[in-house]
Nucleic acid binder design. Structure first.
Lengths: 315, 315
DNA sequence: AGACTTTATCCAAAGGATGAACATACCCTG
DNA sequence: CAGGGTATGTTCATCCTTTGGATAAAGTCT
């Protein structure tokens, strides 16, 4: 989609930028006229030619505006960022998210906490919370995990990355958590499970679907889930199981959880759940398969909720 | 509490501030007119431009008002906190912390995530980061732990409280983390240890002593510590061990860690370390006894650092 | 020829400022 | 307990600013 030409980076005309950034062309012109951001090059016939970096600026601007900042002020902020790091313009044919993930991985490889913090903070302006997680944090973490397994990164580096990206993700979640809740979903890691990132990723999806999310965190026993169902009456339950379990043990574990949630629809995801689709199905749960379109999970869940409403009405 | 969050100082207009703080715009204007708090900058067209710090002031004001303090009085208190904050533990609202902790506990008892989030957010405006942790979060957590052991609270409630207070504490830490670090300290929980709050409490102390804190998080094996020493050359290491271990096992564990950190001074704290003072001493570490004045730990550490400098100079 | 772009001008809706007025709720005093 | 005063949040009317989008006339690409 983007010409991967070498040398100077690809150039876009105004409509293309409008499509890429989601900002209408007239508005782009207005922003340029009023705030001077961005200031694309011109052809001899004075057509605007935006570079990848210009598109990036527009995206940041839009992100800030979406956050509630006034365009004029957002422009001021972006201008300062742009001046502070004049080398942002990477000539590689990558999009902003890939660049951000790359900067994060790079900081981890150099074991540089300060650079990592900066890279993470910069990423947080690159779109909606879910986008940032799905396109920056999650890929970065996956890559870091791979590098660690391959022996290219130390445990300490992996720990540091988890800590910083975990914090950033929690921050994202806090920022988007709605104030006027509609439906509630309780999220938790199964007993013995201490990896929390997948849970937060799921949380961001649920928030986007209009749920309020209550997170019980790592290593949550079945009783705790039962308690929360009794007190909060959530519309759904989400479980995360990253670690692999032997079939028999997993069946035992899951049966306890299925009992605990009662008739509340529940979803489970993560590596540890992936191969147990039949079991999960039998226990009345929904498996969120890795790599699967999240919307499919949502559909399955909505169906359960509808069924449940009908039952309730019938009873 | 310095809002270092959005890099360059973002500026918000009144509507955005209303949304961010939950205080209606007319009230913001009234507060400014009557008490002069906050006093935002103005654009040429006399639009109000609130900095992140101004938003913070408003949040504090609201926090105190929600606790029942009269706005005029709250304004007085906030003004004093704002002026004297960096070092002192300003306190006119003697029981404000107790009230805040009470609200948190109350929300947990009612298993009301929304109320909990609100109570926590309000608490975060009642002074410096360390004050908030030591006087609000830590007591609340202690109390919640007790209630749980006594069977008055469910596991789910305890989990929820940990999750929310943990997030808030991480947020506090992020806000006070200095930008230009002098000395670095690496903090981690020993292997098998998954409780992180004490570590964050320690982190807040180190930050106040002028350290940059790099947190490796829960369940950190000795090798990871060795890696981080090799790469970051921290001035000190802090370990947390909440769980109790049999003496023999703890000795083995700790020997590995002592080897890993090499000549770097190290401190260890938490219930699990409390009874092993002699062992820790023998391995060259510093025991941060529970209930002990943190300054004593600091002194011991500074002494080690001095000794180390002298050795280095001699060699 | 037809689809895009450019500049310039204009417009209307949304958001802000100000000052004054209101409506409560609270406190003190008689 | 009644009555007067104060503190405080909210509303109104009026005018100003910002901002996204529309239109027109002319130039440029393919």
């Amino acid at each position: 989609m983007k010409p991967v030409s070498n040398g100077p980076s690809a150039q876009y005309r105004i409509q293309a930028v409008a499509r890429l950034s989601g900002v209408p062309a007239p508005t782009l012109r207005a922003w340029e006229r009023r705030y001077g951001i961005p200031s694309p090059q011109r052809t001899e016939s004075s057509y605007r030619l935006y570079t990848e970096a210009d598109v990036d600026l527009v995206r940041r601007l839009k992100a800030l505006c979406d956050q509630g900042m006034a365009p004029s002020q957002a422009a001021e902020v972006v201008r300062r960022i742009a001046e502070a790091e004049p080398t942002t313009t990477v000539d590689l044919p990558t999009d902003a998210w890939q660049v951000a993930a790359g900067q994060i991985i790079d900081a981890v490889q150099r074991f540089d906490p300060t650079a990592l913090e900066m890279a993470v903070q910069r990423s947080m302006l690159l779109g909606s919370a879910r986008t940032i997680f799905d396109k920056v944090f999650a890929p970065a973490l996956r890559r870091i995990g791979d590098e660690w397994h391959a022996g290219h990164l130390s445990i300490a580096q992996e720990h540091m990355a988890s800590e910083y990206l975990g914090n950033a993700t929690r921050e994202l979640l806090r920022l988007v958590q709605p104030t006027a809740p509609l439906r509630t979903v309780v999220l938790a890691c199964v007993a013995g499970e201490y990896h929390v990132m997948a849970l937060y990723g799921t949380a961001l999806h649920f928030v986007q679907w209009g749920y309020r999310v209550v997170i019980l965190g790592v290593d949550t026993p079945a009783e705790a889930l039962a308690d929360s169902v009794a007190s909060l009456h959530p519309h759904a339950i989400g479980l995360s199981a990253t670690q692999a379990h032997p079939k028999e043990q997993f069946a035992q574990l899951l049966t306890r959880y299925a009992d605990a949630v009662g008739t509340t629809p529940w979803v489970i995801g993560g590596h540890g759940a992936n191969q147990h689709g039949a079991l999960i199905n039998r226990l009345g749960g929904i498996l969120a398969r890795q790599g699967q379109d999240p919307e499919a999970v949502r559909d399955a869940l909505e169906t359960r909720l509808r069924e449940r409403r009908i039952e309730a009405a019938g009873a």
